[in-house]
Design a protein around this nucleic acid. Structure first.
Length: 243
DNA sequence: CGGCTTTGACCCGCGC
DNA sequence: GCGCGGGTCAAAGCCG
């Protein structure tokens, strides 16, 4: 975990060309991300707003986040209004009526856990029969739980922004009512269960919508990497912690 | 050769 | 029950 943070920070320096355009062009899609807010989301999550209400971005406490895993002094607050204060010179594209926010919050299946059980079954299965039948199994009663999810919009020509983690693309789908496909990535760093989707806004092709979903394994609570900012030459990872 | 992307097929949830 | 759309799988191909 901590090492990962360090690595990501290091990696960031390798891709400054990406990050340079982030700070002034990043827009969050706040509440709409939690379309069906689970109890977990409601109760114990530290919304990005908490962080962004930190007045001074040059404050050392913020940059501490760079070095240490997000140990977040949270009082649980419900996510309320969209950020009234946007980092520095952000353009305001994040109007709540953005149709994308609804598309981002469309229902999803969370297959992370399923896959594990699937794998087990697969081994018991006949090798020849290993096709897609594997997905049939049990887990009837279990309603899939949605992982904490967060999206933000970035004005960028580059779709897959380098956030310091390694991602493997595992799918791409055409999006309804959008000429742009949506790409699915899975974090390949060890013990990182985060997935993300990247798609370009159909309304404004210059805007890339990135949605992070999942948690980092082995951590108490769930850390969701919200975004990476680069401010005053420093790299800043913004997380959401769900306890 | 290993890791990654591409892409068609499949699964699943949801609305009608 | 059916169809649609979103999400995932996995084989094949590509590339360093």
């Amino acid at each position: 975990m901590e090492k990962k943070e360090d690595n990501s920070t290091e990696n960031a320096s390798l891709s400054d060309h990406n990050h340079q355009m982030i700070p002034s062009n990043i827009f969050f899609m706040a509440n709409s991300m939690f379309d069906t807010p689970s109890e977990v989301d409601q109760k114990g999550s530290l919304g990005f707003i908490d962080m962004f209400n930190v007045q001074d971005y040059t404050s050392p406490s913020i940059f501490d986040l760079l070095q240490t895993p997000p140990v977040i002094p949270l009082q649980s607050q419900p996510l309320t209004s969209p950020p009234s204060t946007v980092p520095e010179s952000s353009e305001l594209v994040n109007n709540p009526s953005s149709p994308n926010s609804s598309s981002m919050s469309s229902s999803s299946t969370e297959a992370a856990n399923d896959k594990q059980s699937k794998t087990v079954e697969e081994e018991e299965e006949n090798d020849q029969e290993k096709t897609k039948q594997q997905l049939k199994p049990k887990k009837k009663n279990q309603k899939r739980q949605r992982e904490p999810r967060f999206a933000f919009m970035t004005k960028s020509e580059i779709e897959h922004l380098d956030d310091g983690y390694r991602w493997r693309k595992y799918g791409q789908k055409a999006v309804k009512n959008s000429p742009f496909p949506r790409s699915y990535y899975r974090c390949t760093s060890t013990a990182c269960g985060v997935k993300k989707r990247v798609e370009r806004s159909s309304e404004d092709p210059s805007i890339v919508v990135t949605t992070y979903e999942g948690d980092k394994g082995g951590v108490k609570g769930k850390f969701t990497l919200l975004c990476i900012l680069e401010l005053h030459g420093r790299r800043l990872n913004i997380y959401q912690l769900t306890v």
